[in-house]
Structure formats: C-alpha cells, structure tokens
Design a binder for these strands. Structure first.
Length: 507
RNA sequence: GCCGCGGUAGUAUAGUCCGGUCCAGUAUGCGGGCCUCUCGAGCCCGUGACCCGGGUUCAAAUCCCGGCCGCGGCACCA
C-alpha cells in the first residue's frame, strides 16, 4: 500500500472514530445557557496576544465555540491588545493563537483586533463624558488616595464641557504618561475600592513602548474593562463565558452599560483549570525559557501545558475538547489529571496508530536456527491486510530488550520461539500454539540489519527521560508528526526524522 | 486584612435550583477474570465519595446556621 493510500485509510478510519465519538459526546450535552435563543447566541473568545494559549485558555475558547454551535449562533475571536506597555502583545502571537484555535477545531465566525478600534473607543468615551458619566482626572496618586478613603478626586465634578476639552488634550498628546486618566463615575463609597471610579483610559508613551500592530500611532489607550464593555456591546455578544477572575470586572463593566443604556450580556464565570504536572503560567514559562536557553524546545515544548506543547506531545485536539466539555462550566476549580487526558487520548489513538517494534534498552544477540523464517507482521492488530515482512535467517543479529532477555525463553512476536542460551538465541519451535502451551511471554524485537536508532523522549515534569533505542527500519515510511504505537512501550509521535527523535505521548 | 465564590470516590463529573425515585450514576485509576501473537484496545466482575458539627423535616448530598479547607478579586494588567 502506498503512503497515499495509507493516509486515506487512516483518514477514513479517523473519520469513523470522529463520528463515533460525536455520538458519544452528544449524549453528554452541555447544560443550557440562560436566556439563550436558537439562532441568536453570540459568544466570543478574547485572548491577549502576549503569548500562546494554554489548555486553561482553551476552556473559554472551546466552550464559547460549542455553545455558539449548539444554539446555531456565532462566535467571535477578539484580540485584546490594549496594553502596549505592561502586557505588550507579541506580533507572532496573533497567528499562533489563530493556528492553535484552528487545530482545536474552533472556527470563529468573525475576528476583531482591539488596537485597530481605538477610534471607536474614543467616540464612546466622548459620549460618556457628554452624559456626565466620565471625567478626566489629573491628580494622579492623590486621587487614588482620596478614593481609597471614600472621597472624590478634585476633578470629579467638572462639567462635561471641561472634561471634553481635557479629553481632547489627552488625545492630542498634550499630557505625558501618568499625568491624566479618564475615570468612570461609579460610587466613591463602593465597598470594593477598585470599583470606585475605575480608570477607563490612560496615556502610554508608545514611542518608548510601541505596539506591535499600530506602533506609536496612539498614546491614549482604553483599559480592559472599558474596551471589553464597548466591544461586547457593539459586537452583539449575548453570552460571555470567562474565568471567575473576571467576576469583579463584570461589576465594573455594569457602570458602562447603565450609563449608555445598553443591555448587559449574560455572564458565566467558571473556575481555574489546571493540568496536573504541567506548567501553564505564561510568566513562568517565559522565565525558565530565558534563564535556561537551550534547555527548552520553544513555547511548544511538550513539557508545557500550552496548546502547541500538547499538540507536539501527540495529544489529539478531540481529546482536549472531550475533557474540556467534561469539565464544563462549573465555578469550582478543576485539576485535570494527566492519566485522564492520556486515557482519553489513548482510546482515540489506538485505532489509528500503526504498531512498530522499538527496543528501548537494546541488547544484540545472534540467532541460531535451521532455516530462514519470514515474519508477516500486521501494522495494526485490527487491520491484518496491512503488514510488513521481516525475514530472519541463521546467524542474523537481533535486538532484544535487556529485561526480556532475562526471561530466557520467550516468543519473538510473529516469528518463532527461542531460548537464550550460551549467549545465543536458539530456535525452539515456530508455532504460537507452542508458546501458549508453555505460557511463554511474547516479546518484541528488531532485526539489526534492518534497524534505525531512535531517541524517544518522555516528558517528566521539567525533565526528559531519554530512551536511546532501536526501531524497525520500517519507520522511514512515516513522516514528522506521525503517531505510532511502539509495541509494549507506548504511543509516540515522530518529532524529527533525521536524526530520528520522537516523544512518548503516553504509555 | 477586606470583599466575593466554592467544597460529591485518587482525579474529573452527574445529582443540589423544585428535599424522598441516591444505602449516590458515569468516566478514569486500582484489583480480579475473559479475549488478544503488545505491558495497547475491547468485554465482564469488583473497589472506592456526599468536608466537619449542629438545626429544620416523617425524610437532607440537596434547605438553614456555625466551623474548617480551597479558590478568585482588591492595578493607569488582561
């Protein structure tokens, strides 16, 4: 069978599995959304493009997409890149996030980039100033102090006209960073100090901190809560699915909706999602990568909990989707166990991964047998029509795992039964029945003259456990990213073809 | 410290709103068996949980109060 045919085969198989799984996950429906009407639900996934996304971000992304689909609505991707200074967006991150979403099967209907919408935010800000809902505050830390004591900053009662003039000055580069902010009038006595007249716009010196998309074109930038409220409304978002770290933001945003007389979307806040044993934190990943350059393979290092890391490790997007749907929208935190993800993934991999033999602790032994034997070994136990033939003759050298050799007597899978004596592998009998009768262990093996060296790396926390082993030469029929099962070893993914390097996805 | 929110087996989740059908379902893990020329998959059996203490009630995982534990927020970050 040609490689092309094989691919088709796998695809057709993969599709079947997909269908099977779909039927299953349709049984497990997501709970209904409040106030949701078929055809009218609009959700959004709004990442900050300052890094790649991880499995925790995948939760709002997948749920937003799935709910939109469930209600025949639409889902919007919105890049929230309104801080060129402390959370500076990375130019490449926009595409990397798009790629990760595509891989996850999340297909947004529309896409927006907030840094390209600043004029819209300015217009809404002006409306709010006219309505007396916002004011320009030039008192810096003094205002902060006053507010924390429940008192009004000096400019709080300026007229809309005065504020408009000041706002234009902010826009016109009249003030420097830190000299003026636009505040939303809330309640200076609100029990939570951070809600008291929160800041909607601040000045950022973009000549010193250029934005990756708009450079130094703008100095006046909206804060998260302002930009989010305006865009959620303007883009017609009906349901916001986000982490519980935003609960307070929802309260802040309410003031905008009230002032503008807009209807608030429905909010669903869920808990934090962690993947046991994986690093997810952007800042920590960045830190260890810069502290140990050369020790990590990139943001897609299989030891990281990033989407690209899991992909590179060999996890299937359907597996991620399945566990995310399983976790659902509970407010409580969830620690996904790796065993669980691995088990879900294994079941999806099992029918599509070809089986090959790889000896992780190879010992070379010579066989002694009366004649040549041809082993016809299926590439997959369920598909006996796809196979390779390995011919073994007297005097050939074979690699066997050091632990298996201790068994002394065993069956080489699909070949024959042998006894290890005097440093030689002596032929005993051929039939598998004999092996069964004697309860011989069936072990894997690799014919030396038909083999390749391969490095398999098992991610273990921040380390790799490396296996410098020997694999069948047949592996050259597969490309980078091919997923295989090495018999009695585990599921692997080919990361590099020359030299041969793979990652152990899981056992 | 202050504000808010949670706590079902090792892990994840169903049930909690509208108390009885829950001596708590499912998946995974673990133990055993079957099947299989893999230590994978599949099939079967088993194991294992309502944070603690009070209260309300004929009846509480479900309602109320207190405690303990955990999480989130308290930015000119998102």
């Amino acid at each position: 069978m040609s490689l092309e045919e094989q691919k088709k085969e796998i695809e057709s198989l993969g599709l079947k599995i997909e269908e099977k799984k779909k039927a299953k996950s349709e049984e497990k429906l997501l709970p209904p959304l409040p106030n949701a009407e078929i055809g009218k639900v609009v959700t959004r996934f709004a990442p900050n493009p300052d890094f790649v996304i991880h499995i925790g971000n995948a939760r709002p992304a997948i749920l937003s997409y799935e709910y939109a689909k469930m209600y025949n609505g639409k889902m919007i991707l919105r890049f929230e890149d309104t801080d060129p200074r402390t959370k500076t967006p990375i130019k490449e991150a926009y595409d990397l996030i798009r790629e990760d979403l595509k891989w996850l099967g999340v297909k947004p209907d529309e896409e927006y980039i907030q840094s390209l919408r600043l004029n819209i935010f300015y217009e809404i800000a002006k409306e709010m100033i006219k309505k007396g809902c916002a004011y320009v505050d030039k008192s810096g830390d003094e205002s902060k102090k006053l507010l924390s004591n429940g008192m009004a900053p000096p400019n709080r009662n300026s007229s809309p006209e005065e504020n408009m003039e000041e706002f234009e000055k902010m826009l016109g580069n009249y003030y420097k960073e830190g000299e003026a902010v636009l505040r939303i009038k809330t309640d200076v006595n609100h029990p939570n100090p951070s809600i008291r007249d929160w800041i909607a716009f601040r000045l950022i010196d973009t000549s010193a901190h250029p934005h990756p998309i708009v450079g130094d074109k703008y100095v006046l930038w909206p804060t998260y809560n302002f930009a989010v409220s305006v865009d959620d409304h303007l883009l017609g978002i009906t349901h916001v699915l986000r982490g519980k770290e935003h609960e307070l933001n929802t309260m802040k945003q309410e003031y905008i909706y009230k002032c503008m007389n807009w209807n608030m979307p429905n909010y669903i806040h869920f808990g934090r999602l962690k993947l046991e044993g994986f690093i997810m934190s952007k800042s920590y990943i960045r830190k260890i990568m810069s502290e140990n350059p050369g020790n990590f393979l990139g943001y897609d290092d299989p030891r990281f909990g990033t989407i690209s890391g899991l992909r590179r490790r060999g996890i299937l997007p359907e597996s991620i989707k399945e566990v995310i749907l399983e976790v659902g929208i509970k407010i409580g935190d969830a620690k996904l166990s790796w065993t669980n993800l691995a088990s879900v993934n294994r079941k999806k991999l099992d029918p599509i991964a070809d089986r090959l033999m790889f000896v992780s602790k190879p010992v070379k032994v010579t066989v002694e047998q009366p004649s040549c034997i041809e082993a016809k070994i299926p590439l997959h136990p369920d598909k006996p029509e796809r196979y390779r033939i390995i011919k073994v003759c007297n005097g050939d050298e074979i690699f066997i795992d050091e632990n298996d050799l201790k068994l002394k007597k065993f069956r080489l899978m699909e070949l024959a039964n042998y006894e290890y004596k005097d440093g030689m592998l002596k032929f005993v009998s051929k039939g598998v029945q004999d092996a069964r009768k004697e309860k011989l262990q069936i072990i894997h093996w690799v014919l030396a003259k038909d083999s390749k060296q391969m490095l398999i790396r098992e991610p273990e926390g921040l380390q790799f456990k490396d296996y410098n082993g020997i694999v069948e030469n047949y592996i050259t029929n597969y490309n980078k990213n091919a997923r295989l099962q090495f018999l009695r070893f585990g599921f692997i993914i080919i990361d590099n073809v020359n030299p041969l390097i793979g990652f152990l996805t899981h056992r």
